[in-house]
Design a protein around this nucleic acid. Sequence first.
RNA 1: GGGCGGUUAACUCAGUUGGUAGAGUGUCAUCUCGACAAGGUGAAAGUCGUAGGUUCAAGUCCUAUACCGCCCACCA
Length: 883
Amino acid sequence: MLENLNKTYDPKSFEDRLYEYWNENGYFKANVNKEKKPFTIMMPPPNVTGSLHMGHALNNTIQDILTRWKRMEGYEALWLPGTDHASISTESKVVEKIKAEGKTKEGLGREKFLEEAWEWTHLYGNTIKNQLKKLGVSCDWSRDSFTLDDNLSKAVEEVFIRLYEKDLIYRGDRIINWCPSCETAISDAEVEHEDSNSFIWYIEYPIKDSDEKITIATTRPETMLGDLAIAVNPDDERYKSLVGKYAILPLINKEIPIIADSYVEMEFGTGAVKITPSHDPNDFEVGERFNLGQNIIMNEKGFINANGGKYEGLERFVAREKIIEDLKKEGYLKEIKEHENAIGHCERCSTIIEPLISKQWFVKMESLAKPALEAYKNGDINFIPERFGKVYVNWLENIRDWCISRQLWWGHRLPVYYCESCGETIVSRDEITHCTKCNSEKLRQDTDTLDTWFSSALWPFSTLGWPEKTPDLDYFFPTDVLVTGYDIIFFWVIRMVFSSIEQMGEVPFKDIFLTGLVRDSEGRKMSKSLGNGIDPLEIIDLYGADALRFTLVTGNSPGNDMRFYNERVEANRNFANKLWNATRFVLMNLDEDVATKEFSIDELQEEDKWILSKLNETIKDVKHNLDKYELGFAAQRIYDFIWEEYCDWYIEMVKSRLYGEDERSKEVAQKVLLFVLKDINRLLHPFMPFITEEIWSHLPGDKGALILAKWPKYRSEYSFETTEKDIEYIKDSIKKIRNARLEMEIAPSKKSPIIFVTKDSSIEELISSGERYFKNLASAENVIVKSSKEGLDGENIAVVLDKAEAFLPLKDLIDFKKEMERLEKEKEKLEGELKRVTSKLLNEGFVSKAPKKIIDEEKDKKQKYEEMMDKVLERIDNVKKNM
RNA sequence: GGGCGGUUAACUCAGUUGGUAGAGUGUCAUCUCGACAAGGUGAAAGUCGUAGGUUCAAGUCCUAUACCGCCCACCA
């Protein structure tokens, strides 16, 4: 009697304690170890000031499962954690904070503002890490990284300079996406397009020195202030005579040329387009082709500037209203139509993006994208699920240069200096005091910072010490798998791939495991504004981290969204409870002196062999599933083995031995119970680390933590095919007898002998030797096996089995009407099966073309069903006589 | 305009080379039997969106189509 577990499963009583235990003993740490193969995962760094949501819980659970599994398999498993400075997001939070204190960014100045930001970071920077610990993440905290750490910043600077030196970074006036609220440029990836119902305005422009007019259609009338031309398609007969002439820009009274460019589609609108090179990406290109120059009419806050004449000072949408009003008043507005179009919004603050010409820094993408594309085509990187490969390819094939400069302060400042005397641009690793060209001391550093994703793109190697040639980098890089949401393929995955190929000469990871979204129980996206977010910490508090983890990896497949509802977590908590109680059972029936002994194969009983054989299959299947990242299958397989095979059958079968007189048999049962339980905990540990470690600490033998234990291996000596079949036959018979008793409404307490009739000697032997199973599990008083059913036609319940019949003499407890109904149902079922099998076997095509194995199986079935049918019919006749 | 995903039991979802449809929850019946009522035992429940096709055999492969959802895109 070794039982020393609490009576009920209470995750709160040990989860935090165990995390401390693992962490303080350094079990999460990974070091260069040439004896072992490395396994590396880089945690996608959450925003430093963020807090844990279900998305984090999902992908960190997956990473933890993989890491724990590989660690147990004997790999030197490194899971490197960290956080991202999240420039735009953090900066806006800090701006809000100081605003509440009556301060502004400009008022504070760069230095003071950054002090505030650091303070904010230190205040909230540990929140998410502590929350992650609640989940049980086994990452190496001694390597915790932050994108603004000195060494990571050094990597950023180095990459910038290298790209600049290779001419892959340039500065120029380009149309970029400008957020008037964040007051910074953002990249294409950071723009979210949203369909909206708007209008299209038809505006008439008079032609110079003529009575003719030309009507254009526009969705953004305010930009007309910056018009530098009108364009028509060169093939458009309607406008051929106007090309080369000038139009008068209404309200502004400025002459603009009418040009012909094939970009204009004749079918859309009126076939004539106003060209505003400074405020539209397409118009910008047309402007370049025709040397139209620039005319910027808006400032950084989205207000009309001096170039807008009398509209100067108006906010862009106020200006729109005013302009429409004026156009109407002066008769230029011909028509307004409803129009649906996709409007770009800032990914961060949802403000409508303003395409703007601006001097920014860009990464030239063409030569970087090419090898990234090849890496996929060569199979150097794999997507799980595969379909996301297409998304990757599509983005890379249509990629445009990456705008990397941000008009923000929180981030990596560009290592770029300008000489105020000669105008030289100097890109330098070191702080410089003199202009390299004119030796002037009048230098100023570029005030911009880099896109956050510029630094996270280097995460897989910057965290390992690059650009230094460190042993860590040599050993742990490239990493094995990246686990992240499909929504950041563009932001992050692609940029890591090309950055790594460029700097390291190889891909940063082999596999990319993409998770879906965790939605609420109604299938809605969890969001702050809807207030429907489910807090992982609350779930952990209610059901424990293990139940949450299990819920997140089962019942869904990679890359697909899942709905989250508490009932599922509850079911998994119940599963944990089941294991907990099974353990209690094993421990309370385990004699101390048996605990450390091993069993030998020749002393095993049938059910021992059966469970060991089943365990073996489970080990094989789980390994197979995990190798293919099928975590859900693996988890389900372990769940079924524990609940159905170990608890419902093995434990029940073994009870008669534990409570019996045969000391030797009892001992073997105890040893097998413990042996299997240990493997169960090993298998389940990556999925449910807390409960398994807690149980492990109470099991005798194996000293040491489960987290470091060996992963179970398939043992060919524990495969017993014949025994498996025998036990399955017994199980099947027991189920049929139970079913019959329940349908006849006979309480389990009403026991009876079970008389088996069979002409098959192997079945006879099997049933005789399995008497205790029937006694324990099918309410049998005793078991009798006969070869003839003489004298059994009377007051019995008859259960038809494969190659046998079972009779339960329950006499007056039997309601023959019910017995008849039961038999009729059985008959119907068999008729259906027989019909199916027979027609299949009569099908010429099937018999001539199907594999022999399948045909033989069908033939066997047919024979079996026929035999059973005969018995059922015979029995029906007998019952009729009795009624 | 392109691309992708979903449509399977009342609900939420699995379904790994095509070979008699599975789980959890819920429902019904039953059981205080020496681990567990967060449990045991058993039951009912599916035209696998629709229409074609390939095949001896299709939830699974192909072609259309409907509905729901997502992503990408410079028709002003």
